[in-house]
Amino acid sequence: MLVRDVIEAIETLCPPSLAEEWDEVGLIAGSPEWEAKRVLLAVDPCEATVREAIDGGYDLLITHHPLYLRGTSTVGAHTPKGAWVTDLIRAGVSLYAAHTNADSWGTAQAMADLIGIKDARPLVPSEEDPALGLGRIGRIEPKTLGELADRAAALLPKTPAGILVAGDESAMVETVAVSPGSGDSFLGLVDSLGADVYVTADLRHHPATDHLWAGGAALISPTHFASEWPLLPKLAGALARRLPGLETDVSTIVTDAWVSRR
Rank of each mutant, 00 (worst) to 15 (best):
D113L: 04
L148E: 05
T252V: 05
M1G: 06
L239Q: 01
P45H: 04
T72V: 04
A83V: 03
M1S: 06
G133T: 15
W229P: 05
R139L: 09
K118Q: 08
T79S: 09
K158Y: 01
I7Y: 02
L69P: 11
K81L: 07
G167T: 12
A36L: 05
A102P: 01
D202W: 15
L88K: 09
T223G: 12
V173P: 11
I137Y: 01
N101H: 05
K81E: 09
L231S: 13
I28S: 05
T159G: 10
I7D: 00
A108R: 11
S31P: 01
A177W: 00
L189W: 04
Y68K: 02
G133D: 03
L189H: 03
A149M: 05
A149Y: 11
L69E: 11
A120F: 13
A166K: 02
R262A: 10
A214Q: 15
R136W: 02
R51I: 04
P230E: 14
P222L: 01
G237F: 01
W229D: 09
T100D: 02
L193C: 13
D210F: 13
V190Y: 02
A240T: 15
A177T: 00
S170A: 13
V124D: 07
I140K: 03
L145D: 10
A97C: 12
P244T: 13
A77K: 11
P157I: 01
G92S: 12
T248V: 06
L243T: 10
L235V: 15
L193Q: 12
G167P: 02
K81Y: 03
S17D: 14
L156E: 05
H211D: 10
S17K: 15
G181F: 10
D249F: 09
L18S: 07
P45Q: 07
E33G: 03
A91K: 04
P180R: 13
K118C: 00
L114Q: 02
G237S: 12
E8A: 14
T100V: 01
D129A: 14
I137V: 09
I140L: 06
G237L: 07
D249C: 10
V254L: 10
G116K: 14
V254T: 03
S221D: 07
D55S: 08
E24Y: 01
L88N: 06
A171P: 07
A9M: 05
T107A: 07
